[in-house]
Nucleic acid binder design. Sequence first.
RNA 1: GCGCCCUUCGUCUAGCGGUCUAGGACGUCGCCCUUUCACGGCGAAAACACGGGUUCGAUUCCCGUAGGGCGCGCCA
Length: 475
Amino acid sequence: MSSAVVTRFAPSPTGYLHIGGARTALFNWLYARHFDGRMLLRIEDTDRERSTQGAIDAILDGMRWLGLDWDGDVVYQFARAERHREVAENLLVAGHAYHCYATPEELAAMRETARAEGRPIRYDGRWRDRDSSDAPAGVKPVIRLRAPIDGETVVEDGVQGRVTWQNRDLDDLVLLRSDGNPTYMLAVVVDDHDMGVTQVIRGDDHLTNAARQGQIYQALGWDVPAMAHIPLIHGSDGAKLSKRHGALGVDAYRDLGYLPAALRNYLVRLGWSHGDQEVFSTAEMVGAFDLKSIGRSPARFDFAKLENLNGLYIRTSEDAALVDAIETIVPALGPEHALTAPIGPDLRAKLIAAMPGLKERAKTLVELIDSAYYLYAPRPLALDEKAKGLLGNDARARLAAVLPTLEILSDWSATTTEAAVRHFAEGAGLKLGQIAQPLRAALTGRTTSPPLFDVMAVLGREESLARLRDQAQSA
RNA sequence: GCGCCCUUCGUCUAGCGGUCUAGGACGUCGCCCUUUCACGGCGAAAACACGGGUUCGAUUCCCGUAGGGCGCGCCA
């Protein structure tokens, strides 16, 4: 069995779950599920200054919304600080690490000098071979790794291939801070090892870290897990994705009206491909996912393609499921939408009835809500500009003329109302559009709202007639 | 500055030496369908960054150049 696969997603809780992190989580999740393994979740909160509970909640919520479940309990890295300290001490005893008494100010000056002189910006190893008896009074030391000076460090990466560094280009990193807390470099290595992680999948920005962590593994005599560094996601201008590009946390995508399945599908195709296939069900993704087919170049985030995919997922969603989805984002919409959650049973029934006609033409849930405006808008209907333009005196006269024809109808299904309106138009020597357009404007307040005859069916006889009378009389 | 990585249509990508007059998808444009808007159908424009090699033959392999990205914290 290949159930030995263990992946992990390890975000730092210093902000929301951003789109790059979401994709990293997705890839880890897919890899684990593909091999029938486990995906663990670890919150890297060793930076006590910047870690917040709000960020932790946002990350967990974001993953749940995306449908990325993890195995076992969430591991909080800070809670394991004692173990990290222990490992650092062991390294010290074994001679693979040493105390460094350089102060932060001193190191900053060192870097500044190096920069000014055009030399590599690295720790110069000034305490590497110095005895602790030289230690200046009152300075608490950090523990640094005694990294090899000669030779090279190699990372066999599942995506990037074999990547090699000369050890002379890598300096002695800090393992334990002067306050006794572990650094990220130490904590990651110890935790991945202790948690039994077999496959690390993370952003390309960690590639150099992989080399430095490799040195820690070596000093510890531990096996290095398989590595895979996936290319980053860039904004539409090619620069690193930032707020400037309108991309926030995954919660923002939810509020914008994107479906988690659509976002997943979009994200999986950013950097990964499976021949010409564009649309993947979750099961297909899990079945087809592999590291081999991940590209090495960064991808730009394209809202247009996400929208297209979202539209596809909306079109193929169940009507009731869409109404449920709508309900979840109503609180984020703002009062101008005149819709409140929870949605009452009458409105829910109407929305479900209207969905087949509505979902064909919506790219987002927000658009879906807008197009259903006529179902929840307060009466009298506020007309948009184009609808006003369509309801001139001529049009109102036509509405008044068609009313008797519609009033004798008892069955208000889409087919019978269509037949009636067509019949009327013919009899009056009008083109269908000449009567259909104002009818829709009168019934919905919009000109882009979908199939008139669906609208009439959903609204029903009394409601439709009432709205038409209102408009016909206000001439 | 030093190190590492990347480079096929506007965008996401297929391509793993000849099948490439380079395929698909989104977007764009045109036509059809049509009461609007969509959906759907058909079609069009649109790319191998540049320069050297290797080879009978390079989009595919190697080396440069240019451009881009990431890293170089007692952040993660």
